[in-house]
């Protein structure tokens, strides 16, 4: 029981890092090539939302038991 909790914490952190990293990185690349400066922030917000949404689906909507 406690062990599944432990796994969930690290999975949550992994999702947040992956979401922020991927879409923030995409925004950074877009900024770099399009010579704009707002897309990084936009991408980071999108990534954060994605990470939280995935956590919502995985752990909260259909909560384990």
């Amino acid at each position: 029981m406690a062990t599944t909790d432990d796994g969930a914490f690290w999975t949550i952190i992994a999702y947040l890092i992956a979401g922020l990293g991927f879409w923030g990185g995409m925004g950074f690349l877009a900024d770099h090539f399009l010579k704009t400066n707002f897309l990084t922030v936009l991408g980071m917000f999108l990534g954060m939302a994605t990470g939280l949404y995935l956590i919502w689906i995985r752990f909260i909507k259909e909560s384990p038991k």
């Binding site: 949550i12 922020l20 956590i55 909560s63």
Partner: peptide, 28 residues
């Protein structure tokens, strides 16, 4: 437990989101 667990995870995710935001901004 089954009622509290999702709520605790949601709160944890929201709080941790801020920490990771800080981590990324420190690098960016």
């Amino acid at each position: 437990r089954s009622i509290l667990q999702p709520i605790a995870f949601l709160g944890f995710a929201l709080a941790e989101a801020l920490a990771i935001f800080g981590l990324v901004l420190a690098f960016v």
